[in-house]
Amino acid sequence: MGGAGSENRWGDGARQKCEDLLDLRISVLRKNGLLETGRRGSLVWNVGGRACASIETFMNGQFLELTYYRREFAPELRRVHEIIPLEITEQPFGGERRWFICPRCDRRCAVLYAGEGFSCRLCLNLGYRSQYEDPRFRFLSKARKLRQRLGGSGNMMLPFPDKPRGMHRAMFERLYDRGRALEQAGLRALARSCLHGFSQR
């Protein structure tokens, strides 16, 4: 893996962001069938369309075994074997959901980040990039992500995406209302900023 995230340190001492590190998501493992007992597989991270890191996985009962390479002292690579406990919880309306158990703090979480081994956001003291965005753009950034989550374009000049196949109508309507509210809040914030700037001239 080459020390995933180790070359993304912020030189100015600012708090690192989740988006700066490679992440391991339970949803991606589930989507690729890698949570089935006895299943071996691999994940590849891409940056700019090119592979930047990879990891081998093996589902061993209630544990996920990870194998990857970390750069300790350039140009040396060290093979790392890591074991992540998993936990299953029952869902209120039926079904089950799996979680990682953070190896450092034993907290249940859906995403682990590559630092000195995989651990949760709190253990690595990570923030989200959106926390540091100008409020004018934070609303619009969330609105774009919601559109893309529904399978549409992040371009707000285009019509709002249609309901994805398989999604309940009630869920879609909630997301639609939230998306529209975010867009309007973002546009209002931009308008206030423009008016303020004009008044200062």
Rank of each mutant, 00 (worst) to 15 (best):
L35H: 07
L35M: 13
L35C: 09
E36W: 09
T37C: 06
T37G: 09
G38K: 08
G38Y: 11
G38F: 08
G38C: 08
R39Y: 02
R40N: 09
G41W: 06
S42W: 11
S42P: 01
L43V: 03
L43N: 05
L43G: 04
V44Y: 05
V44P: 04
W45A: 09
N46V: 06
N46F: 14
V47A: 14
V47R: 15
V47E: 15
V47D: 15
V47M: 14
G49N: 01
G49H: 01
R50K: 15
R50S: 13
A51K: 13
A51V: 13
C52F: 12
A53D: 07
S54C: 05
S54I: 03
S54V: 02
S54F: 03
S54D: 09
I55P: 00
E56L: 11
T57Q: 05
T57S: 07
T57K: 00
F58M: 11
F58G: 02
M59N: 03
M59A: 10
N60P: 00
N60C: 12
N60E: 14
G61P: 03
G61F: 11
Q62W: 11
Q62Y: 10
Q62L: 13
F63P: 01
L64K: 00
L64Y: 01
E65R: 08
E65I: 11
L66H: 01
L66A: 00
L66I: 07
T67I: 07
T67D: 05
Y68M: 04
Y68V: 06
Y68I: 08
